[in-house]
Each structure stands twice: as C-alpha cells, then as structure tokens.
Design a protein around this nucleic acid. Sequence first.
DNA 1: CTGAAAGCGCTTACAG
DNA 2: CTGAAAGCGCTTACAG
Lengths: 336, 336
Amino acid sequence: MATIADVARRAGVSRSTVSYVLSGKRPISDEVKARINLAIEELGYIPNAGARALASSQTHVIAVMAEFYPDEFAPAMLQYILGISRTAQEHGYDMLLTTNQDGPAALRRISASQMIDGAILLNVAAKDRRLPVIHTMSQPAVLLGLPDDPQGVDVFDLDFEEAGRVMVQLMRAKGHRELILVSQPIHVVERGGAYVWRLRDAAIEEARKSDVTLHCIHAASSQPDVGRDLNAAFDAFPHATGILLNNEAAAGALPSVMAGRGIRSPQDLAVIGRFSDEFARTFSLPFSSIDSAAEQLGDLAVRQLVRRMDAHAANTPQKPGAIRLIPPQLIDRGSI
Amino acid sequence: MATIADVARRAGVSRSTVSYVLSGKRPISDEVKARINLAIEELGYIPNAGARALASSQTHVIAVMAEFYPDEFAPAMLQYILGISRTAQEHGYDMLLTTNQDGPAALRRISASQMIDGAILLNVAAKDRRLPVIHTMSQPAVLLGLPDDPQGVDVFDLDFEEAGRVMVQLMRAKGHRELILVSQPIHVVERGGAYVWRLRDAAIEEARKSDVTLHCIHAASSQPDVGRDLNAAFDAFPHATGILLNNEAAAGALPSVMAGRGIRSPQDLAVIGRFSDEFARTFSLPFSSIDSAAEQLGDLAVRQLVRRMDAHAANTPQKPGAIRLIPPQLIDRGSI
DNA sequence: CTGAAAGCGCTTACAG
DNA sequence: CTGAAAGCGCTTACAG
C-alpha cells in the first residue's frame, strides 16, 4: 500500500503538502497540486483510515444503532436504514450498522473507541436505555423515535398522534361510526414502543370528540396468530364498518382474512393503515394509508447529524436539540 | 478519554504491560493483571480503535457490500444482513454496511483505506464488477451468490438448480402436467442475476425429462404490474394446474389475484414458491415453499470469512476458495 | 514476568 | 506558498 510519504517523494514535496492538497485546508500552487494529484493517481494512493482518525479525531463513519425484535416488522426498519445510508453517502460518511441485543453497551463501546463521528438511534423507546449513554458520549447523536424525555437530544419521528386523529376523521367523514383499531402486539407497548399508544390514544380522544365508537385491539405481528386476532375482532365487533391498522403484519394478513369472510373493501369494510408505500406495492395491499415516511425520516436524521458533527469538529457552540414530528401524509387507494 | 498511558500510570506499570493484558499475547502475573484490570475498570478505559488499527493492521470490522435495486426484493436482502450481523457480533466484529450504487469503487476505497479486515459481497451477479476488485485487495472476501467464474473466491448460495428440479418433481408427483414458472423481472436477468436462470433452466430440463409442460414468464417486482402479469399468465395458460414462484412480489400478489379470479389453492391451483419462512409468516402466504435460507447463508459466510481473516492475520497459507451450495429445504404449507 | 522505545501513517501547529 | 517535526494512542520486536 502506498503511503503519503510515497506520494510526497514521487511528487518531490513534503508529506504535509500532500496532506494539505488532500484536505484543501491550505492554498497550494496549481503546479504543485497537479504534480501531487498525478502521483496520487499513479500510485493509486488512498489514505489510511486509522492513521487519519488517530491524527484528526475524525472517522467519517456514523453508527446506526438498530434493534430488531421478533415481534416488530423488520422490513420497516430497513426503510430507515436505506434512507440513512443514501444520505450518509452523499455527505461522505460510511455507516457502521449495529443490531446488537445490548444496545447501550454497544453504543458505549463504539463511541468510546472513537470509531464514529456520530450516531443515529433507531426505534427509540419511551424510556430507552441507550439514551443515558448519549450524554456520556463525545460524539453527537440523533434519535429516530420520540422518547418520554428527549433530554435535549434531536428527535425525528412521524406525528403518530396526528396520524391517529386523521385516521378517525377520514372514517368519520365517510359516515363510519364504529371502528376497530388494530395496534402492534402488547409486548411492543410494554417494551416502550411509544408510537403505538401515541397513535392509539389520539385516535381514542378523537373518536370520543366526534362521537365515534372505537374498539382497540393489539394483534400479533405474524401469522397465523394475527389472522386469528383479526377474525376474533370481526366476530367481537360485528357492527364495525371501518378498520384502522397500525400493525404491518395485520395489514399484510387482512386481505386473506377478508377473503375468508367474504367481505370486500370499501363496500363492506373501510380500511386505512399506517405503513410505507413500498410495503403496499410489494404486497399488493389495496388499502389507503398514512405513509411511514421512513426514508424521509432517515434522510432528515442524517442531515441534522451532519450539522451537529460539523459544529462539533469546528468547536462551534451547539444549538439545543429539537423535536421534529413530520405530518402524516395520506396515500389514497380508495379503501375508505 | 482515558488512554493506555493513564491506565499504565494508575496501575504502576508500563504501557506495554497493559497492552499485553488486553491482548493476552504474553503471560502476566495475576497480581499485576488484577491491578491493571482494576485501573481499566475505574477509568472506564476503552482502546482507541484508530490507534489500534494503525499499530496492528487489524480493525475488527467487516464490510458488507449490498446493492439495492428497485426491482429486487429488499427485505430478502435484510435477512442476509441480519444473519451476517449476528454471527459477526458473536465473533467480535462490527459491520460496515455499504449500499453504494458504485459497488466496485466503494469496495476499492474501503479496502484500500484499511477500514476493514474482510468483506462479504451480497447478491453477486454472473459477471459481477466487484469481483476483479477482490484480487487487488489485501483483505479476504467471501461471496453470497454464485458468479459465472468465482476465480478461487469462497462462494455461498442456495442450490437454485436443485430448487428448480425439486419444484417440478413435487408438482409432478401430485399429478400436475402443465405448470407456470414465474421468475423475477427480465431486468434482473439482464443485470446478471444468475439465480433466476439457474432455477429456471434446471426446471425446464427437469420438466422436459418428466414430460411436464412448463411455461416460463418473467413478472414485475411490484404492484400493480405483477398482478397484471399473473392474470395474463393465467389467461394465456388456462390448462396449467400448478404455479412455481421464484419472485417474492408475485408470491405476495398471488392471493389477491387468486381471490379475484375465484381460484383456490390447492383445490384449483397447486402453488410452490421460493422465499423465506419469515416472509410467508409476515404476509400470510399459505403456499409451500423452498426456503431462501438467507440467515443461514449469512452465518456461513461470516464463519468462513473469519477463518480467512484469522489465517491472513497469522500469515498462514490460505486454502483455495470453495463453492458451497446449500440444498433446498421444503416448508410444506399444503398448497401442492 | 516486565519495560523502554520504535513505529504504524496520518494531521497540524510552528516556522519561514 | 512550502517544509520539518511533534504528536495522535496504540502494538510489538528488542532487551533484560
């Protein structure tokens, strides 16, 4: 492997001059610059990342801390990761992806070992155990998912409360007065999956205000249980004319459950879900939905993190963290 | 941040002794070891990754080179990544995930900058442009997906040819004599997605041998096109009594297409797919399938890569690369 | 069983 | 506009 010394020797300059050409932190004459670039080209020189990190305290790597639970919908997580990855790349950052069970320990280790310039925490829970670690870190971090107390850290999330209200309002506007809301499994709630109750509680409140009966259930996150749960709900609430889905697996299972019961949408049942367009297209889901906006949220998180990392590197005072909840976007597939 | 010098000072030893306690490469007396471990504990010392990489030429990071195409099924890719991530973690490796459009350039840069100890290439194409890069790398690499010429590199993949044969045989055993095979979009083939034609050509050959009529089509990878393609196929081949699916989106769309045409499985149509159990469970797919075995393949790839990296670090001569095709596993859901 | 010191390949004040 | 040199925090031969 060629080193910066090899490049310097070949170009007939000092190592520092090569370094300054690479970083652009100092004006270098065009002639010297051309010689150096030629040498770099000829040697196929690429700087050693470890040496660079050691000398500059910058790695150009961001950590993405994911936690995959068997009862949550993994492909949804992937959408965030893809959004993050794309934007990170545009900004010249590589991505260290961690799916460690022990998130707090992994974050502490990766941060303390200075492998990264910043971190994005996915699927943040109400009382996320990774949150205290952030305050011990020398690098900035950004949250995807709203905790009970963000403690001054930047947060990006879908406005699940508004989503819950909108879902009820849309149904109400079409004359539906009795609805079923299918949420994630109760385990997700117990684990602190705040998005579940943020949507649910807002929907309940909206239903109360607009004189709509709303039956709330928690369904499983995979077959065959979720199908059984849906059937049980239809049996228990035979007068419901609309269903709200905040559970991807339930959305995936609904078409076959409906086929089994001989009910159709929107004729016999109005349906609205909360999932990504990608998801709907891949699985032929003919249901209107509030978009998860995962890629967009991932993109926003990276942009904010980059701002933080730049400020951190420049030793600029940091602005206080902000909470950004993006408004729900309806994709109408005619199922209401 | 505490450094190794801080630990050494606090424990009253030299930096090298601390280093040797950490690496275990030298016997250290229990008493000194205890003092050092106490100091490490008290200071919360975690070694600087960049310094370590620079001094030891080892990073304990592996690169996972993914390429996400809009016409391929992203969640399937995720299964590989999760398998890799878990096993990597068990072996003490972190994972740098790249979804760069320009795979060869990304691999070259990451390898040359010495950010990684090894790489896993996902979704390897027949004439994969990343393959030539591997031979210029100083780190070992492993392929997930069989190219035309593996050039001595380790390969792990599902035995798609055997999968094609098994699918036809299972149908034939139940008396089906006219079948439809739904493959990925033709773009995937043109891009070198060898798994498509490996399964297809073997199925064609098997059909020929066992006197079965096999109609091969390429369907789109998302709605609404894939639904249209399936309907067109049923219209074109009204006497077919069985369908083989090597296309996740088609599998996802089939239930609603069947419902639309009023046909049921297995009564009116025998169905077998090639997808993961995870996929079937999440989307309520009632079809028997050949498992993709993505997590298992990811796990195997990491284990092999770890062996290679160990040998590389120890300067041991490397054994020649091997091709490992894992046999198809049937998951019977009673749809044949 | 332990230590002093060189060296990994960069960046960046310091100096001119 | 350019260079000589210190220093980032480790590992590992060399020496005892």
